[in-house]
């Protein structure tokens, strides 16, 4: 799959259609976001896999116990291009949308390509609707997440509208090249959409109210107010944050005042959260924020029938919907 992505990126860059291709780059053994601006850099492009099919936890353990040597590990990785081909998108994720917003604020007239997973694309759709990105200036190249990752994320739609398909040849028609990918009739694997409400949410809802309160308090008590959830959130694009307003959230104390801090963020997320889960991943205190925002999303879709980023609504449609934009 990665070779296909590279080919598409190359075509896009060479045709001059995009100024840069925002994707992940593997360098110095680390994966990070990178704006590829020239074709020869594309060798470093990666889809987010750290160690192929192995998950990150076990590799960390192995490293700590000193049983695996670091250098060969990296080489295995580089050599395992084939494996990546099959496993598809890996676990290393970054808020590429958020970075794109920042880039295009500085270069408003340029067009950029971006590697998108299901969550990334949901984010893009919301950002289009919220005027943070111009759909005409973004070319999406989609990749689908593997089943295990989708399950772990409880992702309702772990693929974008169009994604690079292994079986498809990339040297198709011109249109296909430009769009990067063709919509496939068949989903790459089973979505979790049927499982509403999500297991994590349902589990909590089965508790007594007071137990639920204690459960959350235990989590919120760990918050160190690092703003990591906000800083990584692709939907948090405000220049100034309410949560840093002294009137709303008292400064100078951790854990931050409950419920103001966490619920205010949950309310702000209500119409925004595209359920990418980066907040939970980024949280150093391991607060299950995603579960909270998932619930906020559930309520919103119950109330208004709209789940941010999921429906194929155009920005103008969203503007006309009576129930959106209220929160």
């Amino acid at each position: 799959m990665i070779e296909h992505v590279k080919t598409i990126a190359k075509q896009l860059l060479e045709s001059g259609q995009i100024t840069g291709f925002l994707s992940l780059k593997k360098e110095h053994g680390q994966i990070g976001p990178h704006l590829f601006q020239s074709v020869d850099q594309l060798d470093y492009l990666c889809l987010g896999d750290t160690t192929g099919t192995e998950n990150r936890e076990s590799s960390t353990e192995e490293r700590y116990s000193g049983t695996v040597e670091s250098k060969p590990e990296i080489e295995t990785n580089r050599a395992s291009g084939k494996q990546e081909n099959q496993s598809g998108a890996g676990k290393s994720r970054y808020p590429l949308n958020k970075i794109l917003v920042r880039i295009s604020r500085n270069y408003p007239s340029d067009c950029f390509g971006i590697l998108v997973r299901g969550c990334d694309e949901r984010g893009l759709k919301r950002l289009f609707a919220l005027n943070q990105l111009d759909p005409d200036k973004v070319v999406r190249v989609g990749i689908a997440c593997p089943q295990d990752l989708a399950d772990e994320c409880e992702c309702l739609e772990p693929w974008p509208d169009k994604w690079v398909n292994d079986t498809e040849k990339t040297d198709g028609s011109e249109k296909e090249k430009i769009d990067g990918t063709e919509k496939s009739d068949k989903a790459p694997h089973e979505p979790v959409r049927q499982k509403l409400p999500c297991e994590s949410v349902a589990r909590l809802e089965s508790l007594e109210a007071r137990d639920r309160f204690d459960w959350w308090m235990e989590h919120f008590a760990r918050c160190i107010k690092c703003y990591g959830c906000r800083d990584i959130c692709p939907m948090c694009f405000c220049k100034e944050c309410s949560l840093q307003d002294d009137n709303l959230v008292r400064t100078g104390e951790i854990p931050p005042e409950y419920p103001v801090f966490h619920l205010a963020r949950a309310v702000h997320m209500a119409e925004r959260c595209i359920d990418c889960g980066l907040c939970s991943e980024a949280c150093p205190a391991a607060i299950p924020l995603r579960t909270l925002y998932k619930k906020a999303g559930d309520i919103m879709s119950n109330e208004s029938g709209v789940r941010p980023g999921y429906s194929d609504l155009t920005p103008s449609d969203i503007g006309n919907l009576p129930q959106t934009g209220e929160y």
Binding site: G29, Q30, R63, S70
Partner: peptide, 22 residues
């Protein structure tokens, strides 16, 4: 520097073959 690619090394790491010490 070459060996420090990735997550780095924990000393003691006396030789080039040594994986570092957790």
């Amino acid at each position: 520097y070459e060996r420090l690619e990735g997550d780095g090394l924990q000393w003691p790491c006396p030789s080039l073959e040594h994986p570092g010490t957790g």
